[in-house]
């Protein structure tokens, strides 16, 4: 059984906000609700890095654990969804979420927040008709055999979505051909690659890894 995950390859993320906008396009969330966001750390410094984050569909989702209404549920694909009809807008999921994923259309007196909205992994949510589903939760691409639009449209294929094992495999292969010394945890040391032509001979491998990313994005 698939366990759906996102993976953002920070070496590729350029903060173009394509994912944020693709999400808007797929789900038409209203002004102020961005299910996905891009956070740039150390902006303007050599160590700058950008990371695209949304709901990570955690294995042990804190939002589910704290929700007073139990509006959350996990699909067979490991996607954390919620039922807006049961949501009361208490905000607890936001307090608990490690990634700031849940959002609310308002922030009013008497705790009036409206219904929580968050990334659905483009898997829609509980509804009785496609119209209702789209209105409340946005697209259900998963039911069409497609992956979330944010990852599919990522400008540099930095954002991967799909089965946890598949996306990890793609990422691992990228790390290998990038030539990091200790996994993905070091900057690439140019000195250790005095002859880059050696790398070119491995291009079939690298090409494979990259097209895998492409396929993962395309096929789900």
């Amino acid at each position: 059984m698939a366990q759906m995950k996102f993976l953002c390859d920070a070496e590729r993320c350029i903060e173009c906000n394509g994912c944020v906008t693709a999400c808007k396009n797929a789900n038409e969330t209203e002004w102020g609700i961005q299910r996905r966001r891009v956070v740039t750390l150390d902006d303007g410094k050599p160590s700058e890095v950008s990371i695209s984050v949304a709901c990570m569909h955690c294995d042990d989702a804190p939002c589910m654990a704290v929700c007073p209404t139990e509006c959350f549920y996990k699909t067979d694909d490991g996607i954390v969804l919620h039922d807006k009809d049961i949501c009361i807008g208490c905000g607890y999921c936001l307090y608990a979420c490690p990634f700031g994923a849940p959002q609310f259309p308002q922030q009013g007196a008497f705790g009036e927040r409206g219904k929580m909205d968050k990334c659905t992994f483009c898997a829609g949510g509980p509804a009785e008709s496609p119209e209702e589903e789209y209105e409340k939760y946005g697209a259900n691409r998963i039911s069409e055999g497609k992956l979330p639009l944010c990852a599919e449209m990522c400008s540099t294929k930095a954002l991967l979505a799909g089965d946890a094992e598949t996306v990890s495999d793609i990422f691992r292969q990228r790390v290998v051909y990038r030539g990091h010394e200790d996994g993905a945890w070091s900057p690439v040391d140019k000195a250790s690659h005095p002859d880059t032509s050696a790398n070119l001979t491995t291009s079939s491998v690298t090409h494979q890894a990259d097209s895998l990313a492409y396929d993962a994005a395309r096929k789900g």
Partner: peptide, 14 residues
């Protein structure tokens, strides 16, 4: 682009 878009491209439908 192999399907890829930046923010502007991803907003075309609007």
């Amino acid at each position: 682009n192999r399907g890829a878009h930046c923010a502007k491209g991803a907003s075309l439908r609007e």
